[in-house]
């Protein structure tokens, strides 16, 4: 099992995902992706050892790898939602200031 190859493929897929689908929040995603990649590497190494020692089957190893990809998709969706919340908070803060100002001046 060539972990370097797996990690390279994972990184390429992640970059494609941020470039195409989530280009508006790319800087924030980049940090998440870097964190995710480092955690993914730990997991892949651990699963590789389990596979090598026959503690898990090849099917199970493949299932786990795919689950890690799915977790990433979940986190990307979450990050997009968090960015929306932040924008919404700024919008509400502005509205609040406007209300306070207008009501204060009446």
């Amino acid at each position: 099992m060539d972990i370097e190859k797996v990690m390279k493929a994972l990184k390429e897929n992640l970059l494609l995902l941020t470039k195409e689908t989530y280009k508006d929040i790319k800087p924030e995603l980049q940090k998440d992706i870097n964190d995710f990649l480092s955690k993914s590497q730990e997991k892949i190494e651990r699963w590789s050892l389990l596979l090598a020692s026959n503690s898990i089957t090849k099917d199970e190893f493949e299932w786990l790898l795919k689950s890690q990809n799915d977790l990433l998709t979940l986190k990307v969706v979450q990050r997009a939602g968090v960015s929306k919340i932040k924008i919404n908070n700024i919008k509400k803060a502005i509205l609040n200031t406007v209300f306070q100002t207008v009501i204060g001046s009446l």
Binding site: R46, W47, L50, S55, I56, T57, E60, W63, L64, S67
Partner: peptide
């Protein structure tokens, strides 16, 4: 398997 169960 128990190991797979724990990881999943």
């Amino acid at each position: 398997s128990t190991t797979f169960k724990e990881e999943a």
